[in-house]
């Protein structure tokens, strides 16, 4: 029987965020927004969901006088993403 895909990751924008962060050391909010082509509001909501699940950490600070939000994938997030990809492979029979 096929395993159910992780509901936290299995959404268009959250999957895109996780796919970006898994390949990077860290990424700023503006970078993720540009690459995912999401609106700032929607992106904030989805980042919070991922943070609440323990998949990413969000660091808020300042770059000069400008506020800066940096996102980093956690160990738990990386493992969840790997599991998601493995589950996806079984769905696609790869």
């Amino acid at each position: 029987m096929l395993k159910k895909l992780d509901a936290i990751i299995h959404s268009e924008l959250r999957l895109a965020i996780m796919s970006l962060l898994v390949s990077l050391e860290n990424a700023e909010f503006t970078y993720i927004k540009e690459k995912t082509e999401a609106t700032a509001g929607n992106l904030s909501v989805q980042l919070t969901k991922l943070e609440e699940a323990g998949y990413i950490t969000i660091n808020k600070g300042f770059k000069g006088k400008m506020p800066q939000t940096t996102c980093i994938i956690t160990k738990q997030g990386r493992e969840a993403f790997e599991q998601y990809v493995n589950d996806l492979k079984s769905y696609l029979k790869l």
């Binding site: 895909l5 999957l15 895109a16 796919s19």
Partner: peptide, 11 residues
């Protein structure tokens, strides 16, 4: 699942 794969590849 196919769309998921495309998103992962694209990102």
């Amino acid at each position: 699942p196919e769309e998921s794969l495309q998103i992962i590849e694209k990102m």
